[in-house]
Design a protein around this nucleic acid. Structure first.
Length: 421
RNA sequence: GGAAGCGUGGCAGAGCGGCCGAAUGCACUCGCCUUGAAAGCGAGAGACCCGAAAGGGUCCGGGGGUUCAAAUCCCUCCGCUUCCGCCA
């Protein structure tokens, strides 16, 4: 969420910047709502101040003056109520408008609206030479570690069952990711995966993207399944004031993630790439917003370190302004090489949200000198287990049909190859 | 699920319907004192909203009500604690 005054400030250049995300800012409506709300607040405050003065004077008033004062106080109550009603209504309208305005993309982002418009930043590793590579589904089924048919029986399409060494590999990856995160200074959390509406609103999933979420609860209680640990981790400090000198905070958690994937049918549907439920290690940073751009470089480096540790070939791209998510002001995608698809595919997104999420979630900061503000928030996967497994299988496949496990992972798995048995 | 109790500033903890944004203690900041520190003494300091500022307003768990006036009275919701039941 934006500060409406900042949006109206010409130096922010909000109209042009939002247009790059395909959002047409209605400056006139915003200006009118803000001015109307503020003047209603003023009117209410003034009437209330007068009302307090009158009420206080009642006690010392003579019996003759009393009835007139009481009547005056009654009248003022009506004025206050009317002004409050008006400011409340206008404020609700203003909030609705503000909650739907996306974050401003940084000027350094390339123009465009699709992943084809992304700017290549760097590539890492060599594409392995594999004759007639299989994709991870064929590999996984041949190796007996992946059972999509039975997953569909249990839950429907877009779920997966891992078996034997596949399940163990999943556990090993999670532990490896968490250990690396710890080495990079992240504090591990275990958090709820069912959260309330306020929490989902804080990070920007609600109100706009309800159809992407799984909703549950009981008759009188509304809960949502988290799409990523970003949601509980970032909201840990919602409605809190953090001392600026205590930042940055670096948090991580391994959680299941739930996504309805509404509207994405027909895209990357095969295997483990796009599931309703998957697990992921997430990295979150809360920073001094003046440093968020630098923090993004650090963060993307932490995600890359995971891939480098596994020896997986990947590239980093800077998303185009119009392809950058609602809440982000800048996003790097990390795309891992998938021989089975002969393409780089997204495995992680590292995003800088500036103060956009912190304003929604009420994550405030206070400097030593008393200056108040909002925190900068950032996050990335570090990494999703399923998509990493996809890359591991496809890049690690050997001519004899086996898959070699990266050395760094062997202490966690206890085996260094997957073979059909 | 049943019963009882409790929700006040960073923490602890007072608070008669008007003199209460709120005593007091601890913690905190800045002085004085000290070689330095502690102790002591003095001063300061909550958050949020409107406002260029002066200033004004709101906030005693949330919401509603009574009253000219509510931290204080009433209703309701939420949370916490303890006991019982159930459960991993």
């Amino acid at each position: 969420m934006h500060d409406p005054r900042a949006l109206l400030d010409p130096t922010t250049d909000a109209v042009r910047r939002l247009a790059r995300k395909g959002y047409a800012l209605d400056v006139a409506s915003l200006d009118k709502l803000l001015a109307g709300r503020n003047s209603a607040i003023q009117r209410g405050d003034e009437a209330r101040a007068e009302s307090k003065r009158v009420a206080t004077s009642v006690k010392g008033a003579s019996p003759q003056e009393r009835p007139a004062l009481v009547e005056r106080a009654r009248d003022l109550k009506g004025v206050v109520a009317a002004a409050e009603e008006e400011s409340r209504a206008l404020d609700a309208e203003l909030q609705d408008l503000l909650l739907g305005i996306p974050n401003l993309p940084l000027d350094e982002l390339p123009d465009g609206t699709s992943d084809a418009d992304a700017e290549l930043v760097r590539t890492w590793g060599e594409k392995p030479e594999i004759a007639d590579p299989l994709d991870h589904v064929d590999l996984g089924e041949k190796l007996g570690i992946l059972d999509l048919t039975r997953a569909t029986k249990l839950s429907g399409p877009r779920f997966a069952v891992l078996k034997g060494r596949g399940a163990k590999l999943e556990r090993a990856l999670a532990r490896y990711f968490l250990d690396l995160a710890e080495q990079h200074g992240y504090t591990e959390f275990s958090v709820p995966t069912l959260v309330n509406r306020a929490t989902m609103t804080g990070t920007g999933q609600l109100p706009k993207f309800a159809e992407d979420l799984f909703r549950t609860g009981t008759d009188d209680r509304e809960l949502y399944l988290i799409p990523t640990a970003e949601v509980p981790l970032t909201n840990l400090h919602a409605q809190e004031t953090l001392a600026l000198e205590d930042l940055p905070l670096a948090y991580t958690a391994h959680t299941p993630c739930f996504r309805s994937e509404a509207g994405s049918y027909g895209r990357d549907t095969r295997g483990l790439v796009r599931l309703h439920e998957f697990s992921k290690v997430e990295l979150v940073r809360l920073v001094d917003p003046a440093t968020s751009r630098d923090a993004l470089e650090l963060l993307v480096g932490h995600a890359e370190a995971v891939l480098q540790g596994l020896g997986l070939t990947y590239r980093v791209v800077k998303l185009a302004a119009g392809d950058t998510g609602f809440s982000a002001q800048m996003t790097y995608d990390i795309e891992v090489w998938l021989p089975g698809q002969d393409a780089y595919r997204e495995i992680a997104s590292a995003s800088d949200f500036g103060t956009f999420q912190a304003r929604r979630a009420g994550i405030r900061t206070k400097a030593k000198d008393g200056t108040r503000g909002f925190a900068g928030t950032l996050n990335t996967s570090g990494l999703p287990i399923g998509r990493t497994l996809v890359a591991l299988l496809e890049q690690g496949q050997q001519p004899d049909g086996s898959v070699r496990i990266p050395e760094a992972l062997v202490p966690y798995t206890g085996f260094d190859t997957l073979t059909a048995s």
